[in-house]
Nucleic acid binder design. Structure first.
Length: 424
RNA sequence: GGAGAGGUGGCUGAGUGGCUGAAAGCGCUCCCCUGCUAAGGGAGUAUACGUUUAUAGCGUAUCGAGGGUUCGAAUCCCUCCCUCUCCGCCA
């Protein structure tokens, strides 16, 4: 959510910035509604003030019957007025709120203009894509030939966009999770959390997934208002919802491994083969809660933390800065990390690291006590994958494949798979 | 699922219809006193919105949430949510 004060005080900048995302937003209406709301509120406050004063007087002059009945009739009038004003105010407020929830975050000035993915800016490249002296296979063929992937059975059980791994792949998959958690907690100083995979809509509203992107989510069909999380960013960031943190508690660095569930509505035909795009996948998620002045340093740190996993695994990747049109709703600035996939002869997203500034914090009332100003101010929140486990597995299969169809396991994982060095 | 108890400020905990945004204690901050330490004295210490040059002042709202009774609700009534205890069931 944007700062309502900023919308009215700095409307030209806000309008220009929102336009960079390539969408139309009705600022004028919001500003008009907001000014109506404030006017109405102060009228209402005045009425309430009068009411409070009158009822205090009645309390003091309880015995004088004449004054009493006069006051009481005045009170009835007042109450009638109050009801009307309250009704109006509620209506206005919910209208306004709907607008506020609908606006995406303002983009940081360093974000390049652009309409789509093709206009993202390459920031750095790490590693050399391996040169193969044989025909490379994609992860699906590799896994199926080794008998360790089973998409048909997955489809039987759950339909399309699900996977079944077995044996060495199941173990490698688990090992990756363990490895990522260990690196981030031990070397990068994240605090590990175990969190719910089912969350209330309020939590999703806090991160910006609701109300706008309900179609991307799986909702539990019960009376409980539960959704499956699309990412651990949701429960992790909501750890600080409705709190006021002391300045010495910041920065906070959270990590959790969770399954992630996405409906992938609207992605029909995209990545239908294999396990690039699944309804369910595992992810290790990083979240930072920081003071505003530190958030852009934190974004660099977070991104490098995610990159460190790929470096250790020896997987070539690049970092791109998302352009205005490709940046997500809650983000002010996002770096995607893309890993090299030999079968596709290109880089594919494996992590997305975003600074949401105060956007999520304002929605979830996550604040800190700024001792300099004596004020409670909104924290900045950041999140990034560290990494998407399924896609990491894909990258390992493809980049470490050998001519005979077997897979070499990266050395850093050996301790996690009983020193196994080759699959197949 | 059955039975019961309860949700008040950073914490503990008073408060059953009227200057109660809320006693008291603890904690915390500042000041005073004391040679250090300990003890003591005083002041302050929720959040949001509106108004405002103002982190001054003023107004309003908030005692789990919503609704109702009343001139007036933390206090009475209803609904819901949550927590705890015991029993059952289950991972």
């Amino acid at each position: 959510m944007l700062d309502p004060k900023r919308i009215r005080d700095d409307r030209n900048y806000v309008a220009k910035n929102l336009a960079r995302r390539g969408m139309k937003f009705n600022l004028d209406e919001v500003i008009e509604l907001d000014s109506q709301r404030r006017k109405l509120q102060s009228q209402l406050d005045n009425l309430r003030s009068e009411k409070n004063r009158a009822s205090r007087e009645i309390g003091l002059a309880k015995s004088e019957a004449a004054a009493l009945s006069e006051s009481k009739s005045r009170m009835r009038e007042l109450n009638q007025d109050l009801k009307n004003y309250e009704k109006k105010l509620n209506k206005l407020s919910s209208q306004l709120n709907a607008f506020y929830l609908d606006f995406p975050n303002l983009l940081h000035d360093s974000v390049p203009d652009g309409t789509d993915e093709s206009m993202n800016q390459e920031i750095r490249v790490w590693g050399e894509p391996r040169v193969f002296d044989f025909k490379v296979e994609d992860h699906v063929k590799l896994g199926q030939d080794l008998g360790l992937f089973d998409f048909e059975t997955a489809a039987k059980i759950s339909g399309s966009r699900f996977a079944v791994f077995k044996d060495d792949f199941a173990r490698l998959h688990r090992a990756l999770i363990q490895f990522m958690l260990d690196v981030h907690t031990q070397e990068n100083h994240y605090t590990e959390y175990y969190v719910p995979s089912l969350v209330k809509s309020r939590s999703l509203e806090g991160t910006g997934n609701l109300p706008k992107f309900a179609d991307d989510l799986f909702k539990i069909d019960s009376d409980d208002d539960f959704y499956l999380i699309p990412t651990a960013e949701v429960p992790l960031t909501n750890l600080v919802r409705d709190t006021i943190l002391q300045s010495d508690e910041l920065p906070k660095k959270f990590i959790a491994h969770t399954p992630c569930y996405r409906s992938e509505a609207g992605s029909y035909g995209k990545d239908t083969r294999g396990m690039i795009r699944q309804h369910q996948f595992e992810k290790v998620e990083l979240v930072h809660i920081v003071k505003p002045e530190e958030s852009y340093d934190a974004l660099e740190e977070l991104t490098q933390n995610a990159e460190s996993i790929l470096i250790k695994l020896g997987l070539p990747y690049r970092v791109v800065l998302l352009c205005s049109g490709d940046s997500s709703f809650a983000a002010a600035k996002t770096y995607d990390i893309e890993v090299w996939l030999p079968s596709q002869d290109r880089y594919r997203e494996i992590s997305s690291c975003s600074n949401c500034e105060a956007f999520q914090a304002r929605r979830m009332k996550a604040r800190w006590k700024n001792e300099q100003t004596g004020q409670n101010e909104f924290v900045h929140t950041l999140n990034g994958s560290g990494l998407a486990v399924g896609r990491t597995l894909v990258a390992i299969l493809e980049n470490y494949q050998q001519k005979d169809g077997t897979i070499t396991i990266p050395e850093v994982l050996w301790p996690y798979v009983g020193n196994q060095q080759v699959i197949g």
